[in-house]
Every structure is written in structure tokens, then in C-alpha cells.
């Protein structure tokens, strides 16, 4: 801070000595201010940044012939109400669907096990399992995201989201999941 030094001008001819002031400054106010600003920035910012799950969808505008896929390699997952899942392998209606649930020992285990089974029973380079997700009108967005997440975790190479068929809605209805 600016202060006039009036102590020096007493004697004539004497050496002018400036007073040695202590270099210590009281930092309390500065610390107060700094913490105030920190508090403000913590309050005003979003700490948990949202995450994004990238999804890829088939091109509907092009009418190209789709690759024929053997039924035995496709697993259809139906999403019903109250986070219920039913799945079956092959064509609808031929085998009764299995009721499953979300979680480590639920659909994730099923995905991994069935993927292994199908890879073992089919020959050739393209022997991976294909998962078709069919969300019904009663399923929620949360279930939809969860099932895509489980597919990512299980490392399923090929999956698609398809509109549900009336036959499959009937299957869900039969088990009280619609």
C-alpha cells in the first residue's frame, strides 16, 4: 500500500535509509475470497458429465437385399412391462419363450452362454449370435437402454432393434407382461 516515508529526511548529509518493512502480509482476507469463489464454482458447475451411448441403426432408406440369416443363430429378446424380459431362439411361436430378468445372473449370463453355444454348434467364420431386440409398447426407455447396455457388456457382435410382431405381443400377454 502506498505510504509516504517521512522518517528519512531528518539529518542533512546523512545516508537515506528506507525503513525495512516486514514482508508478511495478512492473507486471511485473500483466503476468504478464494474459498468463496471455489464455493461458487462448485455450486454452479455440473460435475457429473453425461455419458453417451452410441447406437447404430440399419439404413431404412435403402432397399437392399438383406443377408439371409439362419434362424438358429438369432435370439429374439422381447421387452415387456415392469422390466420383464422374454427371449427365444429361432422363429416365434415354435418354442416357448424363457422369462428372464436384468442383472448379472439374468440376461447377461444368458447372452454369454447362448453366444458360446451357438458359436460351438455352427461352423464358418460367421457363427456369432445375432440378437434382435423387440421392445413392446409397454416397455420403458430405461429397459431399452439397459438391454443395449447388456448387449455391449456381453460383447454381442451383431444386434438390431426391430418392431414387435402381434404374435410376440400375444406371447407377452400370455405371461402377463403386457
Amino acid at each position: 500500500m502506498a505510504e509516504l516515508d517521512t522518517s528519512g529526511g531528518g539529518k542533512k548529509g546523512g545516508k537515506i535509509r528506507s525503513k525495512k518493512a516486514s514482508t508478511r502480509i495478512d492473507l486471511t482476507a485473500m483466503v476468504d475470497l478464494a474459498f468463496l469463489l471455489i464455493t461458487f464454482f462448485i455450486m454452479a458447475t455440473t460435475l457429473a458429465k453425461p455419458k453417451a451411448m452410441d447406437t447404430f441403426w440399419p439404413d431404412k432408406t435403402k432397399k437392399e437385399a438383406q443377408l439371409p440369416v439362419p434362424e438358429s443363430r438369432t435370439m429374439t429378446v422381447l421387452l415387456g412391462n415392469n422390466s420383464s424380459i422374454e427371449w427365444y431362439i429361432g422363429a416365434p411361436g415354435k418354442s416357448a419363450p424363457t422369462i428372464d430378468n436384468f442383472g448379472k445372473s439374468g440376461i447377461r449370463k444368458t447372452f454369454i452362454e447362448k453366444n458360446k453355444e451357438i458359436e460351438a454348434s455352427h461352423a464358418g467364420p460367421n457363427n456369432f449370435m445375432i440378437v434382435l431386440v423387440k421392445p413392446s409398447d409397454k416397455s420403458t426407455y430405461k429397459d431399452f437402454v439397459s438391454i443395449l447396455d447388456e448387449i455391449n457388456i456381453a460383447g454381442i457382435k451383431s444386434y438390431g432393434v426391430v418392431d414387435i410382431l402381434p404374435v410376440e405381443v400375444a406371447l407377452l400377454k400370455k405371461d402377463g407382461h403386457y
Binding site: 455419458k51 447404430f56 441403426w57 437402454v145 443395449l148 447396455d149
Partner: peptide, 11 residues
């Protein structure tokens, strides 16, 4: 023809 998009999720 937007066939790639993100779904925002929390961790």
C-alpha cells in the same frame, strides 16, 4: 438417414 446417434445415460 441418421443411422448413428447417441443415447445420453448416466454412469
Amino acid at each position: 438417414a441418421i443411422n448413428k446417434f447417441s443415447l445420453i445415460t448416466s454412469l
